[in-house]
Amino acid sequence: MIELKNVSKWYGPVQVLNGCTTRITKGEVVVVCGPSGSGKSTLIKTINALEPVQQGEIWVDGIAVHDPATDLPKLRSRVGMVFQHFELFPHLSVTENLTLAQIKVLGRSPEQAHAHGLKYLDRVGLMAHKDKFPGQLSGGQQQRVAIARALSMDPIVMLFDEPTSALDPEMVGEVLDVMIDLAKEGMTMMVVTHEMGFARKVSDRVIFMDVGGRILEDCSKDDFFNHPEARQPRTKEFLAKILAH
């Protein structure tokens, strides 16, 4: 479904991704973790070309993302993305947030888009808020709307870029619950997160990145959490720190 081959990226002289290679098959849930500045958010954004790369190949469902000739809007319309800061459109109501791209990008009729969008809004439990504006919702609610917005485009894969990092601790659970349900339904997901509980519970694989944009580990959840002896020293150090508490 997704394949990255030797992907490298520089900001001026600073290398932020260094020969990243991995693949995600259909239905897989992959968690990407690592310290700040390790390039994990950049990596996930290369998959729908929000971040261009200078080297390497990125394939999504047989489409060459790295190819300048690729129709990026079309590709992106099939890849759902959830951002750290929600990025709902503040000048539009919740319902308009859910329907805008369905109508303008996918060409659905307003009625169709409405019905489809509200179906997902109901799924994330926010039907009562359909006529509100994003600013009137809590962070957790906004993020759930953002997930519903991405799902209403019927994506083939969902990318999550630190979806709970900007939330009050009390609201992390409600967002993770939605994501866990989604994973259980078989959605292909790539999730940048520090929530190791989520990784343990529903991920199939864990990718660990370190400063300089290198993938240090790319292994099954079981190997990652239960066989620390087989891990790199840097990974052990990271795990020891975040699992200590």
């Binding site: 954004k45 729908n48 929000l50 990026l72 809007p73 079309k74 590709l75 992106r76 319309s77 099939r78 890849v79 993305m81 951002f83 800061h85 990025e87 709902l88 459109f89 805008l100 791209a101 303008k104 990008v105 996918l106 917005r149 485009m153």
Partner: peptide, 12 residues
């Protein structure tokens, strides 16, 4: 982030 969100939804 708003620009990116629009792009990510497939908007031109």
């Amino acid at each position: 982030g708003q620009v990116m969100a629009g792009q990510a939804m497939g908007m031109t």
